[in-house]
């Protein structure tokens, strides 16, 4: 059995966000790039499943749609334990284009389980996984917080209001995973980094799927207002501020 983990290359979560002067693009100057945290957890779970499968899962592949400079992020996937990597050589212009590029590759390279993070930490689109399943005509389960392999079948766990939902689904399928899928992302070991030198790394030409959306303008949120401290014993003053200044009621 084979698992594919789709990874996005995103700015480090501590990055100070800036946009180009026309407000149409993210300004990537000096930005540190990382594997999207949800994708990294998906990869961690994929590796755990493989290791516990007694050879039933024999391959974990990482895939990314991006230009050459995303290779270091993909290489990290290999360093933490993925068996091989694929980069679809194109710009991830929007969710539809990314999902379509991934679908084109998967059509000719079948996998039993396809994992995507629930969203990427940059644009928070929450769209690629669902679109990918639709384009591939596969079942799709969203907001997955656990996956187990039991008697050769995947069992999927979703957090629902007040409890858990446990499902089975025929393979191949797309699981869109969220927090809880794995405990902590893995740290690459030196042996992992060394092994990543020689693991298969395939670059595939993009099909050139046009995006369906266009960014008109980005705006930064308004700076936070000043914090006003009110002593704990001045309840009247607190009510006055809430009523007069904030107009809370």
């Amino acid at each position: 059995m084979k698992i594919l983990v789709c990874i996005s290359n995103v700015p480090d979560t501590t990055t100070k966000i800036k946009f180009t002067a026309d407000g149409k693009q993210f300004d990537a100057t000096g930005v540190q790039w990382i594997i999207n945290p949800w994708d990294e957890l998906a990869l961690t779970r994929a590796l755990e499943l493989k290791e516990a499968s007694n050879g039933l899962i024999d391959n974990v592949t990482v895939i990314n749609v991006g230009p050459k400079d995303t290779e270091i992020t993909i290489r990290k996937g290999l360093a933490v334990g993925a068996d091989n990597a694929v980069r679809i050589d194109g710009n991830p212009t929007d969710a539809y284009a990314v999902a379509s590029e991934l679908a084109k590759y998967i059509e000719t390279h079948p996998f039993d389980l396809i994992l995507t993070g629930i969203e990427s930490s940059d644009y928070n689109g929450n769209a690629v996984g669902g679109m990918l399943a639709e384009l591939l005509n596969m079942p799709h389960i969203s907001a997955v917080s656990g996956i187990e392999l039991k008697d050769g079948k995947y069992e999927v766990i979703r957090e629902i209001d007040g409890g858990k939902q446990i499902l089975t689904v025929p393979t191949p399928f797309v699981a869109v995973v969220q927090k809880g899928i794995a405990k902590e992302p893995r740290i690459a070991s030196m042996r992992g980094v060394m092994a990543a030198r020689t693991k298969p790394f395939e670059t595939v030409a993009a099909a050139g799927i046009a995006p369906q959306t266009e960014y008109i303008h980005f705006e930064l949120p308004q700076p936070k207002g000043k914090c006003k401290m009110i002593p704990a014993d001045q309840i009247d003053e607190l009510i006055n501020v809430l009523r007069q200044e904030i107009k809370a009621f």
Partner: peptide
């Protein structure tokens, strides 16, 4: 290099 950055990150 890519490898040095990976080690630094690890």
């Amino acid at each position: 290099t890519e490898e040095q950055k990976l080690i630094q990150e690890a």
